[in-house]
């Protein structure tokens, strides 16, 4: 094997590897979407942030406008303090509403911003006052079961024996 031919092939090999790595970073990874130019930081307090993590997207009208920079805990109010960084190009009114949403039923959690009508805009270091907590699935399920149970209670008081029997099999009782 000629030395120059080996050099050529190794060159191709390394170039392919570099291209693959670049492709992974740009096309597969979040290297491009991570770069949201200059940002300003605002914070918001939540009673429960669920599974929100640093670097989670901040969206407004479904468009990514920033990312979660930091998540802290206020030991006085027992609240979570979420600091988000927002792209300098986007300005939001002071009375913007911050929610924690879940993408899909079990998907990733993100911060959603809903603009209010205030004339003044949020500046770096400001605090968003209107927030809504994450919907915690366990809480929802227990609430759902609780309401079901009270429904069943109400049913029991009704004189229909047939329906109670149905209920018990529905809940998975053994058939014997």
């Amino acid at each position: 094997m000629e030395r120059t031919k080996i050099d050529l092939w190794v060159g191709i090999f390394v170039a392919l590897g570099a291209a693959a790595l670049l492709g992974l970073a740009m096309k597969v990874g979040n290297l491009t979407s991570n770069k949201i130019g200059d940002t300003y930081h605002v914070s918001a307090a939540f009673e429960n942030i669920g599974g929100l993590k640093p670097n989670a997207p901040v969206k407004s009208a479904g468009v990514v406008v920033g990312r979660v920079a930091e998540i802290g805990f206020d030991a006085k109010t027992y609240e979570a303090i979420v600091t988000i960084k927002i792209d300098k190009r986007y300005e939001f009114p002071k009375d913007t509403f911050a929610n924690i949403y879940t993408a899909g039923l079990l998907g990733e959690q993100y911060v959603g911003l809903e603009a209010g009508g205030d004339e003044d805009v949020l500046k770096s270091g400001d605090k968003i006052t209107q927030t809504q907590d994450a919907i915690v699935l366990e809480k929802m399920i227990s609430q759902f079961l609780y309401s079901k149970a009270s429904e069943a209670e109400a049913d029991k008081s009704a004189p229909s024996a047939e329906s109670t029997k149905d209920k018990s099999t529905e809940l998975g009782d053994a058939p014997f």
Partner: peptide, 19 residues
């Protein structure tokens, strides 16, 4: 397909760690 991928694959935590 691509946007979900990009939103969830982290360059440092996933790609660099893989390397």
């Amino acid at each position: 397909f691509w946007s979900q991928m990009q939103a969830n694959v982290d360059v440092r935590a996933d790609i660099i760690n893989g390397v």
